[in-house]
Amino acid sequence: MTDSITISIDGVEIPAETHHTILEAADKAGIYIPRLCAYPGLKPNGSCRVCTVLVNGRPQTACTTPVMKGMVIQNETPELKRLRSNLIEMLFVEGNHYCMFCEKSGNCELQGMAYRLGIKTPHFPYLEPKREIDATHPDVLIDHNRCIFCGRCIQASKTFDGKNVFQYIGRTRNKKVGVNADDGLGETDFAATDRAAQVCPVGAILKKRVGFKIPIGKRIYDRSPIGSEIEVQPKDAGSAQ
């Protein structure tokens, strides 16, 4: 059973249902809260922290926090923008993100977020980790250099595809998205048509041999910044993409 309530985001009163998270309520109201791991239909896990907002003055992830009556939420503040920028910059330096030759460029949520937040170059030193490419699958490539550990593929494989292809393995700097086979993705039951192949926000899981087919100018974020699809369609927009 759900109840209709009202919450406030940056001083704007919006309606919400009590089963909503802050992120869902904001999306429905046409207010964009930046996020990288949240994805419609997948259980939120708050791994990227980019959707952090101030709830009654305390930082909370909007994707995991349910709305409550009378919540006062701050989303667009200079401090939150700075925190989000730092998070995005850390994601850039912790992997090997070379946008200049990445086929996801223009369609990449990480790149799109950096542009939206006005990040020109990271302030932190590049860690340049040594990561691998798993090209063993005939139709899909995993480039671990670009993985940001959002966990979408892990959940999508279970929730959408009824499979269990991906899982985190290792810890700290050795953490990676592993596959449930010894010799790479090619040995799993993964298929290019799986939803898990479509949800990667960056260029880590890629369908093979189709890179660069969309010309510059027609890619998703060539036309409008990330988040504008929520901001311009307040009523029926999804909560991500």
Binding site: M100, F101, E103, I133, A135, L141, L206, K208, R209, V210, G211, F212
Partner: peptide, 14 residues
């Protein structure tokens, strides 16, 4: 080396 072949025309022009 190791990069997917369809990436090369965009990569090597750098």
């Amino acid at each position: 080396q190791g990069r997917p072949f369809w990436e090369i025309p965009v990569l090597v022009q750098r």
